[in-house]
Amino acid sequence: MTVSPDNAMTTTDGKAQDHIVKLEDIHLSFGQTQVLKGVNLTVNKGDAVSIIGPSGSGKSTLLRCINALAMPQRGRITVNGTRVDQLTKESERIELRKRVGIVFQQYNLFPHLTVLDNIVLPPTKILGVNRAAAEKLARELLDKVRLSDKANSYPGQLSGGQQQRVAIARALAMKPELVLFDEVTSALDPETVGEVLQVIRDLVRDGMTSILVTHEMRFAEEISDTVVFTENGLIVDHGSPEQIFHTSTNPRIRQFVGGLGARGTVRDGEGI
């Protein structure tokens, strides 16, 4: 078990020292709206953590706090030894973002660049990697996401699922210590969801620390080490997929998971 809303050090397998992300008592509001009201979360190295919960519960904001795209008003965020909440300078936040990859719901590829250049540009311009090395890595990553033949295509020529896989490859090209996935399949049509999930599944299997905000319940259940249920800016419960999806005694979670169960089954039927 990797997540503990009360005490971050409490674990069942004794791997607590290995945590890569630790959020303590995070409070964040946009104007009058309180989005996060005291969130605690610990993620161990190599784990896959899924954050589920109804819309507007603060899942995406929580994710953005981890790479300083959103700054909380209160609380401590530690990412591999870096106190994210104390990063006041833009240059310090950039240093953090180099180490934390993020993939968005709308892919956000750069439309004026080819698929290959989308993946090559960040490491060459941000990390100063030479073009040849960056291109070699980009081709390996394209191979990994099964898009080797699309290297010279432009994003506009690809399907949503293909674009999202390129976005994942682009995030990986920075060799991040962990990757954040922000509802990466929510904008896709059902046929292409599977191919994106397969890429994430491979990634998790390879030991990449991954934090996913997702509505794919079956997928979350399958790949996660821990599932976190959020509602109204708080973590309601957390635990193994088995605990959250099947043995939870919390009526709200039972209702939420039950309501989405049918959708999960359909997805399963499509061979995910």
Binding site: N67, L69, E90, S91, I94, E95, R97, K98, G101, I102, F104, Q106, N108, L109, F110, P122, K125, I126, R170, A171, M174
Partner: peptide, 12 residues
């Protein structure tokens, strides 16, 4: 979102 993607990758 283009700015956000760039920022998320670590571009200044």
């Amino acid at each position: 979102t283009q700015w956000e993607a760039a920022q998320g990758l670590g571009f200044s």
